[in-house]
Design a protein around this nucleic acid. Structure first.
Lengths: 139, 139
DNA sequence: GTATCTGCAAAAGATTTGCAGCAAG
DNA sequence: CTTGCTGCAAATCTTTTGCAGATAC
């Protein structure tokens, strides 16, 4: 994301937004507002309102995507269009991405069955990661 | 849910819980704490703490299930084991149940791929219901 | 210059908790 | 009579907002 792209979205290119976007682009997993606040704060002064307002502006323009997970926190990630889902370990919280999204096929079927125009979905698996399974076994 | 079943779960059988469970059993769609508070309040005096604490006790014993949706509210439903997912209209908020759950197959595949013991999932579709599509078209 | 962004502190909305009194078993 | 349930009000947690000052363009 650079100055021109921001301009074309009618968003001003500020140092804060630059750093927020850099953090998101470098992350390989969705992040909470708090994560982003903590990381950006290492580079410059940041306030929670700026984080939330920037994330919200970028979400509206579809630059980033947000999802509310079962832990009650909202996670943000760059909108790469080949979106991913995740499995979250209920023991240690480890997050593992799932390569394929298995739902597009199903969405077509559902459109036929229900008449809904489907515009999105949220999918979240939870379970116990191999490491934690092993530890439980050893106890 | 009756006195004996509650007893076997080490939960006391109170009038309040009886009414909360009745409401949930009669509902064909997941409900928020507020929904339950409003409905139960028509039959007896109820407080939000009692609603939340009862729902939380029943969730722990797997009598009911909860899910946090993208609207930021937690929805509760009787745990019928043949669980359902829903499509939610982004315009009018209408909720339509989806008959089959398409994920059990996928879960087996994922267990092989990732080594996770998968214990649950959350799936939420959103879209525009036929009624709202039609109205938008007519404008 | 002016529209937009930022910071602070205060507000909001959903849920949880401490504590004292009450009811079920 | 003892353990667990209830009500109230206050606290919590994440996110949003009002307003005054600062910055991008």
């Amino acid at each position: 994301m650079n100055r021109e792209m921001m301009k074309s979205l009618n968003l001003k290119y500020t140092k804060k937004r630059e750093v927020i976007l850099k953090i998101l682009e470098q992350s390989n997993t969705p992040m909470t507002a708090e994560d982003i606040f903590t990381l950006t704060s290492k580079e410059l002064h940041m306030s929670f309102s700026t984080v939330y307002r920037s994330l919200s502006a970028l979400t509206e323009k579809n630059v980033i995507m947000k999802e509310l997970r079962q832990d009650g926190k909202t996670y943000f990630q760059i909108n790469s269009h080949n979106h991913k889902h995740h499995i979250i370990c209920t023991v240690c919280g480890e997050v593992t991405p799932i390569d394929q999204c298995p739902l597009h096929e199903l969405e077509n079927k559902l459109t036929q069955q229900t008449g809904y125009q489907i515009t999105g979905h949220n999918l979240e698996f939870c379970g116990i990661c191999p490491k934690c399974s092993k530890q439980a076994h050893n106890k």
